[in-house]
Nucleic acid binder design. Structure first.
Lengths: 316, 316
DNA sequence: AATTAATATAACAATCTGCTATGAAATTGG
DNA sequence: CCAATTTCATAGCAGATTGTTATATTAATT
């Protein structure tokens, strides 16, 4: 005997509400609609679901038992409804985000935490990679969103890119670095210190090379390579080593007062940090919401940086 | 967003089966029917439920989550179906049975246990009463079935009566009663011993009075009254007291060898034990099954009694 | 590139759903 | 005990939904 799920739900509503009229109200139906469903059910089952001629409507044992199952369905139905609702608002779901390690570690991880304060039911799956990997991952639908620096010319090819922070690199060092004491800093003095190489594949590695080139050096003293951001920072804290980092990454460490940027201008790349997504992706709302959050966070960050720099200037 | 329960069930089937075609088979539908349901769901939700252009069909996170709820409904639906099935076969449900205390305690309770060995999901609610109460309870739908002795003339009035055992009373005593030793027993000797009165309201009480009358006694020595069957039997075991009991009740105690019937014939009442039900009751299958079981059990009992008596005769 | 298997679409008949209007029955209050 | 009121049942109808078969697309396989 196959039973229509809807019928059981309606039965449950009637039993729970204690009457056809109230049950109908609970479901947003009219009373005759429900009444008919009950009649049909009873006719098909060949068994009464309610004691006839008694008014507070009283279910038979069978009626009550079936209503229990209907209740389970009703509950599942409600859960499904709220699930959809929340999903639509981007308040539930999964966002698979990939990005370059330094940005992810220094900035995005914190933004994820903030985002989840407001949307605790959105899970974030983070992965690391550089542009080619991320592009590939997007195309293979292994991630929904990539956060990475991209050469500004590099567009098209089924991807949508949204710039969230202009590219700007600095030379980072520990806050107690000897070069910071100099009145006027000659860029060529940088070559006297050991360097930390950014991870292979990182655009920063290319930036470091072009920096060296612009300083007229054929070679720089790479002392340490392959470490994550935390490793690089820790290494810097304990040495006079220098490295090239995005300004925003150094800025993110400002409160620790352990590392800082040297006051030298270095060529800034024709590159900007941004959000990369497939254009044909039917963006899930949670992805949309997270992207918007990241966008807003970086906007705040830009303002923070601007105010911070003005303060520095005033302070000088 | 209200979702059609049926749609979620279908979604669950597709996700569980891993494909539209197999999901359709699982539900006993055709593939296009399911396919359309999925399209409609996606259109209404505005969200994809499956990754497009991938085969084996793979659900999106939302699709999977909704399918989980659908699965819950599917489970509830199946349970409801088997519930109905079993209910129809009388293998589940509630039977409210009322009866006279002695028969219930001596015979019916055991039959209930036997019945439930085959139908463990049928609950039996037992209550006690004599004919007027039972009639009333049947009419008020407090019980489904009454088991009690009824005067054979007494019929009609919206009730259906099925005789299951002819009325036959005996005088019961303990197995070691002195009267059992007599070669020839004069009925008037019964008056020399103390008696246990059946409970007030019991037809046995009337039978006891008419017995006394037939023995020419104006009065009999009532020593004990008001006890249940167990009490009466225990009292008998420890004394020379006599009482009037239905033969079948005494027979039910035959294995204990503690009480027995005196070999005297006493007037048997124009009364029979039977099943009483309302004629207009849309007999639930469980009630039907239980009634049938009780009927069969008493039939067995009749044969048992017959064989037992023949054995006794041969043994004499 | 051809074949195969699976999914999507189309068209149509039957059913079902919901509604409004109205009748019947049971409870409530005098 | 009867009238008023509330609640449930029934009827009729328009529109939505369901299922079917036949056929077109699409992805995987060889």
């Amino acid at each position: 005997m196959k039973l229509d799920e809807r019928h059981l739900v309606q039965l449950a509503a009637v039993v729970q509400a204690g009457g056809v009229t109230e049950g109908a109200a609970m479901l947003g139906l009219t009373q005759p609609a429900l009444s008919r469903t009950l009649s049909m059910l009873e006719k098909r089952l060949g068994e009464p679901l309610f004691l006839k001629g008694r008014r507070p409507l009283q279910p038979t044992p069978l009626g009550r038992a079936l209503a229990d199952h209907g209740q389970a369905m009703l509950v599942a139905s409600r859960k499904a409804s709220t699930l959809v609702e929340r999903f639509r608002q981007g308040r539930t779901g999964v966002v698979r985000v990939g990005g370059t390690p330094f940005f992810m570690d220094a900035l995005i991880s914190g933004m994820i935490a903030e985002f989840q304060n407001g949307s605790p039911d959105v899970r974030i799956d983070q992965s690391y990679g550089y542009l080619p990997d991320l592009r590939e991952a997007l195309n293979a639908d292994r991630i929904d969103l990539a956060i990475c620096p991209i050469d500004i010319l590099d567009e098209g090819s089924g991807m949508h890119f949204k710039e969230i922070l202009p590219g700007r690199n600095v030379v980072a060092c520990r806050a107690t670095h000897p070069l910071l004491l100099k009145r006027k800093l000659d860029a060529r003095e940088l070559l006297d210190y050991p360097w930390i190489a950014p991870p292979p594949g990182s655009p920063l590695l290319a930036d470091l090379r072009s920096l060296a080139l612009s300083l007229g050096a054929t070679e720089i003293k790479i002392r340490y390579a392959g470490g994550s951001l935390t490793s690089a920072v820790n290494y810097m804290k304990a040495s006079d080593a220098l490295t090239v980092l995005p300004h925003s990454v150094v800025f993110a460490f400002r409160n620790e007062k352990a590392i800082t940027a040297l006051p030298v201008n270095i060529p800034h790349p024709e590159r900007a940090l941004g959000l990369l997504r497939r254009t044909d992706d039917l963006r899930a709302p949670a992805v949309e919401a997270f992207s918007a959050h990241v966008g807003r966070s970086f906007e705040n960050l830009r303002h923070l940086i601007k105010r911070h720099e003005q303060a520095i200037v005033w302070g000088m």
